[in-house]
Amino acid sequence: MGLHIEDVSVVYPAADRRPPVEALSRINLTIEDEEFVVALGASGCGKSTLLNLIAGFLSPTSGRLVLDGRQVAGPGADRAVVFQKHALLPWLNVLDNVAFGLQIQGIGKVERDQIANKFLGMLGLDGFQQSPVYKLSGGMQQRVGIARALTCDPRVLLMDEPLGALDALTREKAQELILNIWNDTHKSVFFITHSVEEALFMGTKLVVMSPRPGRITHLFDLPFSRQFLGGTPARQVKASPEFIKLREDVLKIIFADEEAAA
């Protein structure tokens, strides 16, 4: 069980007189059931490429991905994706956007609205059912995207910098919200972020990646999200000496990568 990424490489073919790009090189990673894996790394190190592989939007050049004993061969309803942007459908209102996955799966109007409403409430969007999505704030749009991904009860939740566009306060609230949902629904999560603090706070496992070629350089097991879910306030978790120490260590790794690239 779980998701196994076995010796996966991705080479984007050459185009327009640019040489081929080795976006991922021999990646090995396991995402166990109910694990929250966070990927962190300098820009261009292949995080989105890895997420697209898991989602099935991209096939590996070599190696294979196995989910629950079956090889990943394309997108499927067992893996839901929260995109960074541009993924809501502006011709549908908030409710219909959230119910979109259920509609695709042929669930009747009454039932899918009921399910969608449940998740809208969970994400604090009650009362916005009929609003057009293009009139929502960035943070609300992002929550609509998360609600939509949750409605179909996927096994794995894939999130590509879902909170990147949010202000600090909304972002911290959204982090806690996602952790609570994860705790309630027992999904596996693969989560990309640029924020070291966010990565440490949310994950149970941290994957640090380096560019050229994209590869995994460090793996850390993280205790902090469990501390938060166990009742410790978020600010207190983030202020603990272990958290700060690890944050500095990871920052050092990433700065070294960025400098090597510059």
Binding site: P75, G76, V81, F83, L89, W91, F100, I104, Q105, R148
Partner: peptide
């Protein structure tokens, strides 16, 4: 991203056409 979102809910090519590409 809109097309990918539909596919990741298990949409068929026809459903992507009908629910994403034609409206947009």
């Amino acid at each position: 991203e809109q097309i990918h979102a539909a596919y990741s809910f298990g949409a068929t090519r026809w459903q992507v056409m009908r629910h994403v590409i034609m409206p947009s």
